[in-house]
């Protein structure tokens, strides 16, 4: 028999070795890009916050302060040194996890941020959980029924969900569950050490407001993605092999459908992190967002710098992980960025 069209077997083995090699190179390249991006971001943030008008010492001491008092505070904060020095000092601190002292309270910033993360971390994860719990069933259901009326209703629902901003939803939830039904707290946070259930209770409404909107957005992507897979030839092949429609979708469809969804999941996570800033304001939660906003109000620029860099780093790392993940899931995906 003629087998002219068959490449040799060791061809495939060597291709696999090349793939692993490529993967390693890809990782190195992406990490290098990450470091450069973070460096540029830090320069940008530092530059914006320090070159543009508005002297922190003046703002902290108020308009009544004498020029000598302002000069003294400026010196004390190290703000009279050359900008490059200030930048290097700050960046060195960041790298060694010494985030510096607050301009306002003179207290170290790191523990304050740590305490804030105890609120923001669970809030973001809770929001993600809520979002996925909504998006996956809603997206798949509206895809399966996309030609029927029920599918139209489902995707209409998602469309409405996208239009309601999370802070409006948060306030509406407060009205229903805190003001009317009085089952959950309207604002504030019970610390984890005081009561775990109390802490969880104070995060329920915020997590729902945060996750619902992201879930609606994600549901649309999932729907599109699943609709596309449902029409794919290989799903028909799966049926022709003897799989029932739902089996075929689960065994062959969902993994394929998840790839385009994964690419937006990174963006959604950044959306959740930044959405948490607003949601914390709605529910007066003492998280990273509240800390950021109060630091902005107090001109505590060093704290602002630290938090902005922390959030930017998180977003970038999350995106890198997502990028890696879907390259691992999809063997066709080239590793050349």
């Amino acid at each position: 028999m003629l087998i002219a069209d068959l490449p040799k077997a060791n061809d495939i083995a060597s291709r696999r070795r090349a793939h692993v090699h490529e993967l390693r190179r890809f990782l190195v390249r992406r990490l290098a890009t990450l470091v450069i991006t973070l460096f540029l971001a830090s320069v940008l943030v530092f530059w914006i916050l320090n070159i543009l008008p508005g002297k922190p010492a003046q703002v902290i001491l108020g308009t009544q302060a004498t020029p000598s008092a302002v000069a003294a505070l400026t010196a004390k904060l190290g703000l009279n040194r050359p900008l490059v020095d200030q930048y290097l000092h700050w960046i060195h601190g960041l790298l060694t996890l010494h985030l510096g002292d607050s301009y306002i309270s003179s207290q170290p910033i790191a523990p304050v941020i740590g305490a804030a993360l105890e609120v923001t971390g669970p809030l973001v994860l809770g929001g993600l959980l809520v979002g996925l719990l909504i998006a996956i069933p809603l997206g798949i259901a509206s895809a399966i029924h996309h030609t029927k009326r029920s599918g139209v209703v489902l995707s209409g629902l998602a469309q409405v969900g996208i239009a309601v901003p999370n802070f409006v939803l948060g306030i509406l939830l407060i009205i229903v569950f805190a003001v009317d039904l009085k089952v959950l707290p309207a604002s504030g946070f019970t610390t984890w050490s005081t009561s775990v259930t109390g802490a969880l209770e104070s995060l329920v409404l915020p997590a729902i407001s945060l996750g619902l909107v992201e879930g609606a957005i994600l549901a649309r992507y999932i729907r599109t993605s699943v609709v596309e897979v449902l029409g794919a030839d290989f799903l028909r092949t799966a049926r022709a092999k003897g799989l029932r429609p739902n089996q075929a979708l689960v065994r062959h469809g969902l993994r394929n459908a998840s790839i385009p969804v994964l690419t937006v999941l990174g963006l959604e996570l950044s959306g959740l992190i930044i959405g948490a800033v607003v949601i914390e304001a709605v529910f007066t939660l003492p998280g990273l967002g509240s800390l950021l906003l109060s630091s902005v109000a107090n001109r505590d620029l060093i704290t602002v710098q630290d938090i902005v860099m922390l959030v930017a780093t998180t977003v970038l790392v999350v995106n890198l992980i997502v990028d890696l993940l879907y390259r691992i899931i999809d063997p066709r995906m080239g590793l050349r960025s």
Binding site: A232, D233, F234, R236, T237, A238, A240, H252, R255, N256, I329, D330, P331, R332
Partner: peptide, 16 residues
């Protein structure tokens, strides 16, 4: 009954 389709590229699951 088995069936073979026209486009062997798209008829196979790309991820399996």
């Amino acid at each position: 009954i088995a069936m073979i389709f026209q486009e062997p590229m798209t008829s196979l699951n790309p991820l399996m």
